[in-house]
Design a protein around this nucleic acid. Structure first.
Length: 154
DNA sequence: GCCAACGTTGGC
DNA sequence: GCCAACGTTGGC
């Protein structure tokens, strides 16, 4: 069982959209970065938990938690010419990109902002906080997971 | 909107 | 396989 952090721009797909889905479950599609894809393909397991992170917005923040509820399978948006995530190099036989299903677990009453995370010296080694880290799916250490969750109780 | 940092592409 | 050029991410 592993912990993750998954980024999304709220103007494209925010936590409220996930909340409104049937069973609060949806596909996490559109990942077009090999490192992020490989995490999904080879390391994510149903039952893993992930932070939902809002990026490229006024207040970048962790806004809730999700559960991974499927293994990785081909990302259909890569095959759809009408999708903004269309990739002409993807084929049925060689899908190139993958996605997983996620289910919303909790939406935090207060977003835990990037600024808050940066101020906590215990979190200094988090990938998210490293200079220039653009990885949109990244592992989170169990101790970091716990520390961050405590912010939701205070 | 700026720009630093990073990832990808493609010629050689 | 190198690396310059280009595209993207994402905080500020």
């Amino acid at each position: 069982m592993q912990y993750w952090l998954m980024k999304s721009e709220p103007t494209t797909y925010g936590i409220d959209q996930l909340m409104q889905c049937p069973k609060q479950t949806d596909t996490w599609d559109g990942i077009r970065n090999y490192q992020a894809r490989n995490f999904m393909r080879h390391q994510m397991t149903p039952g893993d938990l992930a932070f939902f992170y809002h990026s490229s917005c006024q207040v970048p923040a962790i806004v809730g938690t999700m559960k991974i509820v499927s293994t990785a399978y081909p990302d259909s948006t890569a095959l759809d010419p009408n999708s903004p995530y269309y990739d002409p190099k993807a084929t049925i036989d060689n899908p190139r990109w993958f996605m997983v299903d996620v289910q919303l677990q909790t939406k935090f009453t207060q977003p835990i902002t990037l600024q808050t995370l940066r101020q906590d010296t215990r979190l200094q080694s988090m990938l998210l906080l490293q200079r220039g880290c653009r990885l949109s799916i990244q592992p989170v250490l169990p101790e970091h997971w716990q520390i961050i969750l405590e912010y939701n109780c205070s």
